[in-house]
Design a protein around this nucleic acid. Structure first.
Lengths: 196, 196, 196, 196
DNA sequence: TATGAATGAGCCTTCATTCAT
DNA sequence: GATGAATGAAGGCTCATTCAT
């Protein structure tokens, strides 16, 4: 009944399973990431153990998402602390996103594979959650006069998708220059947002 | 090269199956669009009938893609004929894409679900094919002096993804204002690309 | 209703289908010789045509057997005409069988694949029919005093199977020396049968 | 090389499935021995259970073969220990083969149905393995002077097929006299092989 | 006669999940 | 907590056969 308190062992097992799920989903895509394959990746002896720790596949996937989002959140929080201006915040947002993709390509691929692989019935809440920090920056810039008038939702959607773009590059190219990519995006959206 | 001539009946059946597949893939995603569900959608008596008309699932999906691409191609060709300048071409490209998404939301969703849903092992060639028309416009603009210097690939990727953005909105919202959305994108990328 | 009289066209079609079936069964084995593959081999446009000419697969297979048996029978009849003695008849029987296998390897393989491939519920009548000519020779030899006393059925079975032995060699080896093989068998069964 | 250690339960299940497969293959032939029928014979709830214990049908069949070969090997090893001469070895070989067929007719039929039923793409290695013990006896006899000169391969093939001959009889006849059959074969091949 | 189309049963396999131990 | 075992639904696909034209 009690929903929260987990023993240490249980937490460790769940973490191990989640890590294996991320690895597997990143490598094979969501569809092919069956319990059998995740268990093998985690060197678990039975898929039953996954079912034991997670009510069903959906809960496992949800946990994977939470885990990845928490990491991204922590990473972003560190970079984004106390920006002096909205345009600086936007620049940092773009750079930090691509840095994270470069640093954690597996997590990033898993994330995309989940969203793209039909894992979840499309849930607008997820998109709203991802968009919200960007929209906050954009509104800040418009209020401060740094940014021109534009539809915040459209701009935020475009920005969000722009940073997802290079993730797939990471599979093929060994060392794609994400720093340069980030610089291009920074310029692009600086021009697109700033008051003329 | 030349495919065997199809009889009228066969063409009709194939078209019916393809239509049902589009509907089903758009609604459920690629993974859950099983032959059984497609057959039910098409009111067929047996999944065997799908196998009778298509060698395997891959061929069916490929046919779906061809069908959608042909429609998009025809639609775009009509809009894009004889643009006077690169910036006009870019504007038209953005507008036409969103118009098509508004006119054929189901086809558009199916398309994305196939590409994003792990239906195909990720093939850079597909992405290159989608990017190529955009990159041509961008290079034209740079050569003509209309556009500033920027990395064509990054800009093209960002543009391409920006027009995919609103597709999923179409499921929830009955009449999203894609005209306004297009106008925002046009301004956004005009500012981002033009020589200052 | 009328069981026998076939039109010319029908006979030709049936012959064409039977020939294709032999080819296909010889190449792929009975199990994989589906109507679809036989139709392709015969360049027929529809498997329905096979069903039109043959009540079911069993009838087709039975017809194949009759066809092959008729050929073997004709071939053997020519060789075996008027043997001077039982031992000469036996020698000729062995030689003629291997000659036929060398001359018609496809028919021979098809024959074996049918018997071995579970095509027919095992029917002792087939075996009896194959054994009967051999047993006749053997009884002749015993009655004439050329052959010693032995169990005719055992000897006939052994002889029959001995000539089936080399058929599979024909697949792998381009030019197996069936003449030498026949000579060995002739000596073998001469020693095994003759009065000491 | 070393297969993963099986638990007792798993071994028992596998044995049960193998037994059911033997029964089914012997009765219906390889082709008609589907997982569904084997499962029914074994009173299993689902064909999935067979797939759970065996990677695929090929592995099941391979296991059946190993099982039958192990039994035959043990049976033969006992009979064939320390023959005094090649001709005694040959006699024992013939007798032991027919005894085994009499004692284990189901296993024997299954074996033949697998080899003859197109279960395996025809593999000369299998035939060589079956022939090898016979050829060893024959070479021994030729070297010791007991046997006349003859082509060892032809003789071995004929002997091998001669002992397979009566296996199918076992289905129809309740108590075929395989002892008498063996005696006939012993005489036959004694005459055929011995130095005159 | 011949054709293309359709049918529905059956094939092997994979899957998430459950359960006794 | 963890394991191996079992379940039954569902997957894509092939098959022999039937039928309207």
């Amino acid at each position: 009944m009690q929903a929260k308190a987990k023993t240490f062992t249980e937490s460790a097992r769940r973490a191990q399973i989640v890590a294996a799920a991320i690895e597997t989903i990143a490598e094979l895509g969501y569809t092919r990431a069956s319990f059998a394959r995740i268990a093998k990746q985690a060197k678990l002896s039975s898929t039953g153990l996954i079912s034991y720790h997670f009510a069903n596949k959906e809960e496992l996937v949800r946990t994977v998402l939470e885990d990845v989002f928490r990491e991204i959140g922590a990473f972003m929080a560190e970079r984004m602390s106390e920006p002096a201006s909205a345009s600086e915040a936007l620049r940092t947002y773009l750079e930090a996103n691509l840095e994270f993709a470069a640093a954690q390509p597996t997590r990033m691929r898993a994330l995309l594979n989940i969203f793209l692989g039909g894992a979840l019935d499309y849930d607008p809440a997820n998109e709203r959650a991802a968009l919200e920090p960007v929209e906050r920056i954009l509104r800040w810039g418009q209020e401060s006069g740094e940014f021109r008038e534009f539809d915040v939702h459209v701009m935020a959607t475009t920005i969000r998708r722009s940073v997802e773009g290079p993730v797939f590059l990471l599979a093929g190219t060994p060392e794609p220059d994400l720093t340069a990519y980030a610089a291009e995006l920074v310029t692009l959206f600086d021009l697109a947002t700033r008051r003329q």
